[in-house]
Nucleic acid binder design. Sequence first.
DNA 1: ATAGCAAAGTTCCTTTTCGGAACTCAAGCG
DNA 2: CGCTTGAGTTCCGAAAAGGAACTTTGCTAT
Lengths: 155, 155
Amino acid sequence: MRWTELDREACSVARTVSVIGDRWTLLILRDCFLRVRRFEEFEQRLGITRHILADRLRKLVAAGVLARVAYQERPRRYEYRLTETGLDLHPVLLALVGWGDAHKAGESGRPKLYQHRECGHLFDPVMTCSACGGAVTARNVRVLDGPGAAAANDA
Amino acid sequence: MRWTELDREACSVARTVSVIGDRWTLLILRDCFLRVRRFEEFEQRLGITRHILADRLRKLVAAGVLARVAYQERPRRYEYRLTETGLDLHPVLLALVGWGDAHKAGESGRPKLYQHRECGHLFDPVMTCSACGGAVTARNVRVLDGPGAAAANDA
DNA sequence: ATAGCAAAGTTCCTTTTCGGAACTCAAGCG
DNA sequence: CGCTTGAGTTCCGAAAAGGAACTTTGCTAT
């Protein structure tokens, strides 16, 4: 299977991975959530080559995750901002943070702390059920076929 | 920055990405959560080359995400199972599913449905705050430096 | 015994992608 | 003018991925 075929799989993980399943893309998104917006700033913070950065930004714009908007005219300069679709990726990043904090925080502790503005507390991200609000874990979820299960080729 | 330097960053996203930030690795993990365990089964379901599959499985075992356990002697054959550390990646996969379901489900609907065993309902994954239980979104989280912020080189 | 089969890899070779550095372009600045 | 800034693009050698065949260990049927 090639990159290009991935988004035609009848699997939401595969479709999401076809958009963001690349190390640079994930790190770019991390920086987006930290309010980084400009080409050079991404380049310097990430140590990515300009060439690959341009490619990934183009793909994220094409996927509707980022929007390329001019922040000045003459000379025309663009920056990259998360769209609503892009903001919806927040749980993905938070889940990555959660695992890293739990399993990869060295002796000196967590690199970052997260504060929930609504309650004011530092927190860990917890994945919960939209129906009952209870925690969801690998062991208490059952996977069933949905209506789009058979169609390997829908949009 | 190279792959190998990623896990030394003072960032839990980067550290997690250094382990699972690869399209094949993410798809292998998806299948692990669907109870796929054997080399040939991964190969057939994913359409990955044996060579890359062997490499990714080796890395996941080295990272403590999967365990390689013999399921028979003579001839000795191994299978790959999620460890507790691996099971902790469940929220990551669920977050990917959540975004794919919301933004990439075609006209025929979602490929899979998820049922919470505890309440019996089909659900969407919701990222919540461990302190108050409320939903966490991109707009209501504040990021602060933690104790491990400065140390770029701790374990 | 031996030919065939199965599972889990490994090896080899070609194609694609990536890393690194230099170059381009448009406009403002001194 | 020539320099600087920001956002790219181009070019080349290095690294990784795709594809297919080969290896190993032991079982099974002839």
